[in-house]
Amino acid sequence: MIRTIVSDRKKLLDLITLLAAVIFVIILSAAVPNFLSLNNVINVLEQLTTIGMLCLGMTFILIIGGIDLSMPAVLMAATVPGAMIMSKTGNVLVGVVIILGVGIIFGMINGIAIAKARMIPFIVTLSTQIIANGFAVMITNSKSVFGLPDVFLFLGIKIGIVPISIPIFFIIAVISHIILAKTKYGRIFYMIGQNENTARISGIRTDLYIFCTYIIASIYACIAGILLAARTNMAGATMVGNTMLTDTISAAVIGGASLSGGKGNIFGSVLGALFITVISNFINLMGYSYYVGLIIKGVLIVIIIALDRLRNRE
């Protein structure tokens, strides 16, 4: 009984988000020249992969009731050493292993501190963020790495006109969706987010799940980093900007996740990330200044959060 209501409500929220997105797209395509051209659609989707991938990881984290401020920083801290090895030795396998390894180490630091030491996620991931950022700056001296091997750049090539990163992203998104919506583990994630104590009492090893979630988030950050490095043929401490963190969190929240946990789904998060990407594409195509874009984005974030709040009250 309760579950059907929950799932109905979830569907309803999805529907509303989808409807809003469709209306948004219609308005945009009417207002902006070239918006729905094939080139631009692919362009937007390609830009979506980075923030989208981070947003997938963030969705997992938000569902279990945590937050991870370190994701964009981990992306850089993990990708940079891997890229350095790759450009020096040309060995892609070692490079990718290092990227994932460093990412997982950061994820484990977060996970242990939050799940085992029961520290507040915000503080833990904030200090991880500062360290990860400093790490990336220190090993590169702020100088970016370039000249990655061709085998690695395979990830950046196109099939026809579609860059390979787009199908990779959507495949990963579908897998994540299946894990969250169809498996036992997905239900446990939601359960922990709704009430950790209840979950623990009903025999779930909550600390293990929370620990794993932070590692999962770091892996998503690593994949995002790998795709981004392949797409741009570089890695460095300025790979992603300061706004990426805010964008990721906003995208997940726009997509229906809640900072208090237990809510959120992959479908919504992908739409949220798409929404954020489209805003900046729209601003460039219209020739507005970037700063007008910031204003528009800020207002929209506040309004959407306010609407979300109203929706959840009723």
Binding site: N34, S37, G236, G241, T243, N281, L285, G287, S289
Partner: peptide, 24 residues
């Protein structure tokens, strides 16, 4: 001139250039 500013963000600049390409 159609101007974009990447706000010191490399990946944003790459996206900006693509957006400008879309703009023909």
């Amino acid at each position: 001139f159609i101007v974009t500013s990447a706000d010191n963000d490399v990946s944003k600049q790459i996206s900006d250039v693509k957006d400008l390409i879309s703009k023909n």
